[in-house]
Design a protein around this nucleic acid. Structure first.
Length: 315
DNA sequence: GCGTCCAGGTCTACC
DNA sequence: GGTAGACCTGGACGC
């Protein structure tokens, strides 16, 4: 990686870089193999057909936040490309996200007050690019988390790519072209995808020049972006909400159990059938901030468990 | 060791 | 427009 360029992004306060990029629940930002050490994140993203190395760290404070982004590339990026990469970083790091209205909810909502106090300055994040988000959505379907991780790790190990920069090695997700050119049988055998192999290959083939990239989706209204994603085979309501660049509310069986305990004090008899009702109740309570409640609550389960006396981490 | 069951959804056929 | 039933298969569980 011979070429680098650096940008320093201003963010809307409060912005806690460490909590945002390295969430307590262990959610990664760009790839499961990204490296996070002492406040510095080394990860990668794909820009066109080029893999870029990213080194990010906070240079400001929570109340005066700045994020230094060093971008490593094999070939020198044209200034228009640099501009696009910077826009994508700002979008995915949610540097313009204003949390004040959500934090105001804490004045009247006990649950929000609690999580906001625990995770002050944590922002939601967006996916740097589309295909990895779709891989996550597809592999989370109808599988325990352990098996989902197995499928994702095998996809990355067998079909992904390495990028080495700043003395770090990061292995990145396969490109849509790579998956589109792999047979369904090979995907089933090497990544243990089962019936999901056909869907993932179809999606990979659909992500051509006609289909909007993540930044284009982000400029659409949430409804438009979701509608576009729902056109992809194997992407339904839950997956679209998980992938869309605007804040979605991707309630699945696991999170439905947790929200049901928090809202009604018990796990529903049939969680899958209860998803719609819990979603309605949450949206009635938090309105357009439901997605933020989702991210804050799921990243504060250990503390919330102590508060309510029920182990929310067991689901 | 072996059999059975089911998972952090989606699609389709059928009513 | 609403809803059973099928979908791959690894891993947990009971015996």
């Amino acid at each position: 990686m011979a070429e680098t360029f650096t940008v320093e992004l201003n963010a809307t306060a409060p912005y806690n870089f460490d909590l945002t990029i390295h969430k307590p629940a262990g959610w990664y930002w760009a790839t499961p193999t990204e490296v996070y050490e002492e406040g510095i994140l080394w990860c990668a993203t794909r820009f066109g057909d080029q893999l870029l190395g990213l080194k990010l760290n906070a240079t400001g404070t929570i109340e005066k936040p700045k994020i230094k982004c060093q971008i490593y590339s094999k070939n020198k990026l044209a200034s228009s490309c640099r501009k696009e990469v910077t826009t994508a970083l700002k979008r995915a790091l949610k540097t313009d996200e204003d949390l004040s209205e959500f934090y105001d909810l804490g004045q009247s909502d006990d649950l929000i007050r609690h999580v906001v106090k625990d995770l002050y300055g944590m922002h939601t994040v967006g996916w740097p690019e589309l295909f990895p988000a779709l891989i996550l959505a597809i592999t989370l379907q109808m599988a325990p988390l352990k098996r989902s991780n197995q499928m994702m790790n095998l996809l990355i190990a067998n079909f992904g790519e390495d990028i080495i920069f700043d003395n770090k090695k990061v292995r990145y997700w396969p490109s849509p072209q790579k998956i589109a050119n792999t047979s369904v049988e090979e995907l089933m055998e090497k990544a243990k995808l089962g019936y999901r192999a056909k869907n993932l290959k179809t999606i990979a083939a659909t992500l051509n020049d006609e289909f909007p990239v993540m930044d284009e989706l982000s400029r659409m209204s949430p409804d438009q972006a979701k509608k576009k994603l729902l056109l992809l085979r194997g992407i339904g309501e839950y997956s679209a909400e998980l992938v869309m660049p605007q804040m979605g509310f991707p309630l699945d069986v696991w999170s439905t159990k947790i929200f049901s305990v928090l809202l009604y004090g018990k796990v529903p008899e049939n969680p899958r059938d209860a998803i719609a009702a819990i979603k309605n109740a949450s949206e009635k309570r938090w309105g357009r901030w439901s997605g933020y409640a989702f991210v804050y609550i799921l990243n504060d389960l250990t503390n919330l468990s102590k508060k309510i006396g029920v182990d929310l981490t067991k689901f």
